[in-house]
Design a binder for these strands. Structure first.
Lengths: 235, 235
DNA sequence: ACAAAAGTGTTGTATTTACACCCATGA
DNA sequence: TCATGGGTGTAAATACAACACTTTTGT
């Protein structure tokens, strides 16, 4: 048995090993806009340029765990929804070393933030439409992450992580508008969402956004129903 | 500047490096069925068990290039449609070493095959519905690859790679049925596909599948139209 | 002549979209 | 009282699904 008579390599030692990084596209939501958490790179090359927070996958952890660790380290938040986007593997994507990077995205609430922790590193939030150029292929990571989020939003009630526990249908619609980057008809959105039968209406009202006041809803997904609701928004 | 005051790691040397593999879900199409190319693993552990063809990402290549190289090596085919599926990173996914694997899928025509090359390695084609258990997490890779292919098929005329240059609408429908794993109404499918205006009708007929004969069509995608055609099949 | 696939037409239903309109209330 | 978002209703347009029916031709 040797490597030459096998499609699958038979020994590991003869193959190169690579640094494997995780870069996180952290989406936050505030004031009707989807925002992105960016850090200034703290060392050369490209020092000072904006980048996604990232880190390296260690020996004893999966990339999912690495992503969660990095998110915790950068934002202080735990148990946050995260999803893998894609692997970025161009051998020259970073100048100084060959690093394979796995992009992840996360959805977090802006108001849960330890502002000091962010300032410590000079991090700041940018709206998607008003974003600086990012280092390496981080811009492409953001694009793919958003595409994945939009796709998911078409089939699942996604992004409730970005709203308070109780939210109005208008708030939910504005979030969907921010994610899908297009306007949605208020009446039609309301009917569509309610027809899914997955929101629980409360008897409290939000009076901050309108004179009349809007009922708050909550969302407690059944594991069962999660997959059964079909398409939410035409994609 | 050191690693402790930076979110982004500042030096690479202190971080572990990992073997990065590519595993290929190779879809072929024959006799109305979607098939999968599998290889018997040639060494311990799990020797003889079925697995996806794979190999390691080298220093000077991207994972896309590695996937193409592995496909060429296993099937002899070049310039084949391939797409990344996901990274599989559980530290214990392989018993003998920590290997991070990037799954890819490819669409190939069965009749373009060098049968001898396959037999050399004991490879064989399995229908999706009649597939042996695969080693490690390769079964999960197949599932995700199929899901991605089905999604893509809903929005793009996909899998034309699996048909001859000229094909009838019935052949195309059977391919879609194999990909989506459900029956499609012949009349409705025909109308839907033709309404997209992306197929070129030839004046030749296929007489092998029916007495009446069916016109052959070809597909030469415009780069422009590719993204504009909207949904093909409800997903 | 008839079986079987190719191809067309029709009809009912579901979904999407646009938009009119009433409601409640703080300023 | 009036401007504003909350919430309901309706009607047209589109898309989907089911299925009848007609065409063609090798056997």
């Amino acid at each position: 048995m040797n490597a030459t008579n096998s499609i699958l390599s038979t020994t590991y030692g003869e193959h190169p090993r690579h640094y494997v990084a995780v870069d996180c596209v952290i989406f936050g939501y505030d004031d009707g806009k989807l925002k992105l958490l960016l850090y200034p790179r703290s060392f050369e090359p490209s020092k000072g340029d904006w980048s996604l927070p990232g880190g390296f996958v260690q020996d004893n952890e999966s990339s999912d765990q690495a992503a969660a660790r990095i998110l915790e380290k950068t934002t202080g938040l735990e148990d946050v929804f995260m999803e893998q986007v894609a692997a970025f593997t161009d051998p020259n994507r970073e100048q100084t070393a060959r690093v394979i990077s796995l992009a992840y995205y996360a959805l977090v609430r802006l108001d849960k933030f330890d502002e000091n922790r962010l300032k410590e590193h000079g991090a700041s939030w940018y709206t998607l439409t008003n974003m600086p150029d990012l280092i390496f292929d981080h811009g492409e990571m953001v694009e793919k992450a958003l595409a994945k989020l939009q796709y998911k939003a078409g089939f699942q009630l996604v992004g409730v992580e970005l709203l308070p526990e109780m939210f109005t249908l208008t708030q939910l619609r504005r979030l969907y508008e921010a994610i899908l980057q297009r306007e949605l008809d208020p009446g039609n959105f309301r009917k569509k969402i309610l027809s899914l039968g997955i929101l629980q209406k409360s008897n409290k009202k939000d009076s901050t956004e309108s004179k009349k006041g809007a009922y708050f809803y909550t969302y407690h997904p059944d594991d069962v129903q999660e997959k059964e609701i079909g398409r939410i928004i035409k994609i």
